[in-house]
């Protein structure tokens, strides 16, 4: 390695350690560039060993509370805001930095507030997931919300029993709730109160049972066709 190259690599690594990756990425010669990247990895490892500080995390909301004790994760922040606006809806013991646990009673109002309030502006419902937590814990519905303007995201969980599960519907707040809730109803049997058209979406209308529950038993025949595996000796 010539002196020029060594010099170039040293400077590029120094700049990259301060956060400017362009110096490394702009090196034209591929061999030198890869050497610079290797030197950078080594330098970073040394720096981590000597300072013994956790390296800065990127955009994941879960880790916000670890490296900076003063700030909270978005989930904790919004749990506080919701609790102040709608008392008795947030279940404080079960909420954490990864999610907000809500009681089902006023979910529709909370949802409207989350969508319309200028500090929140959660205009995008990303995903509704139904979960079967087992016999003792019942079912749960999890909502992932995201804001296109403020770029923050939270997760809300609402628990319900598995005997007669009911959760208020938010399809009037986020239009995609319509289909997501129908799918959760189809797979788990959770009834969404206030939904204008709650019926099965993926399975046929005359299907029996809620497939994604852990205690689901497949029905024997459907319109005369045998459902479970028929052919012998396949296991």
């Amino acid at each position: 390695m010539t002196d020029n190259q060594e010099q170039l690599i040293k400077e590029a690594v120094k700049k990259a350690l301060q956060g400017d990756m362009d110096a490394v990425n702009n090196i034209e010669d591929r061999v030198t560039r890869s050497k610079a990247k290797a030197a950078l990895v080594k330098a970073k490892r040394e720096a981590a060993k000597t300072s013994a500080e956790p390296s800065a995390e990127e955009k994941s909301e879960e880790s916000g509370s670890e490296s900076k004790p003063a700030s909270q994760s978005p989930n904790q922040q919004f749990a506080g805001i919701i609790a102040s606006q709608f008392p008795n809806t947030v279940d404080e013991e079960l909420s954490s930095e990864t999610h907000i646990q809500l009681r089902p009673a006023k979910w529709f109002d909370v949802a409207q507030y989350l969508r319309d309030d200028p500090a929140c502006l959660f205009d995008s419902l990303q995903c509704i997931t139904g979960v079967d937590l087992g016999e003792d814990s019942g079912l749960e519905v999890r909502y992932n919300l995201h804001s296109m303007t403020h770029r923050h995201a939270i997760e809300i969980r609402i628990a319900c029993s598995d005997k007669n599960p009911k959760v208020p519907s938010v399809e009037a707040v986020w239009r995609i709730g319509d289909w997501f809730e129908r799918e959760t109803y189809d797979m788990f049997g959770i009834k969404f109160e206030g939904h204008r058209d709650l019926r099965r979406i993926l399975l046929p209308d005359d299907w029996e049972g809620w497939p994604l529950r852990k205690d689901y038993e497949v029905q024997e025949t459907y319109h005369g066709i045998v459902v479970p595996k028929v052919k012998e000796g396949w296991e």
């Binding site: 399975l203 497939p211 689901y216 029905q219 066709i225 459902v227 479970p228 595996k229 028929v230 052919k231």
Partner: peptide, 19 residues
């Protein structure tokens, strides 16, 4: 014969020769 969905596919027909 149902393909990769033969084992837990409750909604999959295990082969079109059943119909």
């Amino acid at each position: 014969s149902g393909g990769p969905y033969w084992q837990h596919g409750y909604h999959v027909l295990k082969g079109v020769d059943l119909v």
